[in-house]
Design a protein around this nucleic acid. Structure first.
Lengths: 345, 345
DNA sequence: TCAAGGGGCTAATACGAATTAGCTCAGGAA
DNA sequence: TTCCTGAGCTAATTCGTATTAGCCCCTTGA
């Protein structure tokens, strides 16, 4: 289709130097160990011809023959657009790039995957998962059936974000939301709050379930009150912030832990507006656009770049069969901020 | 290396259904035109087997046989790190992704390329350019020799950012810095400034040369004074901002146009600090981290996302031999801001 | 009864590299 | 002279798919 002149092949080099294609391949791969012997003279000749022609091996053919190609697939469930999404996922990608660079791998962003109902379909007709040596999966929710199938088909992959078993343990590099949420709840308690509430689903995708669990277990073990206000549905913002605020105040709640940054911001700003003292902490970087705010929120710093880099590490270990754990949970730093303050402020 | 059980192939499907591998391939590609005839029955049988086994064609083999694979390479000259760089380049990537998604292409980020002297080497021993159907090149400076070689070897590519000829016209999608800079200079003149200065190299890589040219031509044709203060070297910040400010004031300059956002910010803030009235406009999004500032700078909005998307368009046109221009210059919006004000303010 | 004319399919080959079994030849030992 | 050995190389095969020439058989027409 490109109409370009035919590329130089090993066959061409072989003809030029009067050796066989096999010899060219051997020279190219520096195979001159005990198994294979090549005279220095032949090697020179071939290398000279390679230099002259500027020959480079066709990675595609190489992969067909050798079964791997130093390509890491990157699959993002959430479409990159709208760009709020894109900003959230970018740091992961940066970490992945960083590590890929270290390892000398290329990255295949699987943008070809069709988007159905706002989510990408991993397994579909012309699925390209096999193109890469292995893949990294990114996204809040990952279809359980897809995970099971990946495991069953023994396609090497690593999920960014913890995943429950899906017919077997899922390799992942996640953030320890449960521990981080527990830490925030503990800080609130230390600041005198003894009636807390959780704003969010606290269930569903692992990342939310972990946060919810961290909250529930900590309030329970501390013996303080822990209320719960849920948004209308997965991924949707709280519709009636005023109602939530009213309910929280009615329940005597003085500190709210919000799953979604945007929801927390809205609640805090409304409380401010009304002149009510309410502490709010949010559980992660914004994935949705939040109201503009000048306030430093008490929140979590998700180690996104590190997660990306470590996902590549786990993936290569997986591909190469190196021993070691296939599941890593990275600690999440608590960002102090000014929205979680002493009870009554 | 993965030790996975052998994947299902067309051969397997063929054996299962009692047809030949060729038939399976034909069914798969929906080849039942005037050339090739297949009975509905056979097609059904094969399709059923494909559905049962969950067979998917190996993209690698497909590419080897058919000479293209719907992969677009993305090569970034500047390393992605430090992350200031990464933030600058991200919007381009988003645009590229967007368009790739529309076209059903995957993106290959060539992170395997070794970095030498702080820049990536495009042509190197185990060069993977040919893995993709074509590539997009990103970076402030692109080696002229590399461009010439790409053209000579007829490797389809598009540069993001205008490029001078390199042994032939270089396909590109650039931003029209010359026009945008001219517009800013004209605005300054309208605001009463008749002694302007350019802070930056104004030469070298095309993107800077274009800005410099826009400035020089406009001051010349307007008959106003246009001074020039250059940073120490390409890509380096202005060392002695105070010296620049002194010199500018000594020359009676009242408005400065800065190539690099960070340099402009530093200059403006220093003038503020000293209580001197000085207008400053900067010529683009920050590529280096600037001082934190609360001021809205008069600046340029580089249509990065659009540039990325259009680069993909030009590239596919190139690959498919579709007629049409291979060089596009997109307009740059001038961001009003408050740092370019009437002379004396 | 034979030729002509498809329809429906397959055999064979190409793609470019990696890999392995084995060939050839020189030199030394028996 | 024959046999062996090892160094140095090549022929042949493999990977999984796309493509094309052409085979076989059933109709139809004469």
């Amino acid at each position: 289709m490109t109409g370009a002149r035919r590329r130089v092949t090993q066959q061409d080099i072989a003809r030029m130097t009067g050796v066989s294609q096999a010899t060219v391949s051997l020279v190219l791969n520096g195979r001159s160990d005990a198994e294979v012997k090549l005279s220095a003279e032949t090697r020179e000749k071939v290398l000279r011809a390679i230099a002259e022609t500027g020959y480079v091996a066709d990675p595609i053919a190489r992969r067909l023959a050798s079964r791997h190609n130093r390509i890491i697939g990157v699959f993002t469930y959430e479409p990159v657009f709208p760009s709020a999404n894109s900003d959230f996922y970018h740091p992961f990608l940066v970490g992945i790039e960083q590590q890929a660079e270290v390892l000398g791998c290329d990255l295949l962003l699987m943008t070809s995957t069709p988007v159905v109902d706002g989510r990408r379909r991993l397994f579909h007709g012309d699925n390209r998962l096999r193109l890469a040596d292995g893949s990294i999966l990114l996204g809040r929710t990952i279809d359980r059936a897809d995970l099971a199938r990946l495991l069953a088909e023994e396609i090497p992959f690593v999920s960014i974000g913890r995943r429950d078993d899906a017919g077997g343990p899922v390799p992942y590099v996640g953030a320890d939301y449960a521990a981080a949420t527990a830490e925030i709840v503990r800080q609130a308690i230390v600041l005198g709050h003894d009636r807390l509430a959780y704003l969010g689903l606290g269930a569903g995708p692992e990342s939310w379930a972990d946060r919810g669990r961290g909250f529930r277990e900590t309030v329970a073990s501390a013996g303080v009150y822990g209320g719960h206000f849920a948004p209308p549905a997965e991924g949707e913002p709280v519709r009636d912030t005023a109602a939530v605020l009213d309910a929280a105040l009615a329940a005597g709640v003085t500190a709210v832990v919000a799953e979604e940054h945007a929801d927390g911001v809205a609640l805090y700003e409304l409380a401010r507006e009304r002149g009510v003292a309410l502490s709010v902490a949010t559980l992660g970087e914004p994935t949705r656009a939040a109201l503009p705010t000048a306030v430093e929120f008490t929140s979590l710093r998700i180690p996104r770049q590190a997660m990306g880099a470590q996902a590549v590490e786990v993936l290569t270990a997986l591909i190469e069969g190196t021993p070691g754990g296939r599941q890593r949970l990275l600690p999440c730093e608590v960002v102090p901020g000014e929205t979680l303050s002493e009870r009554g402020n």
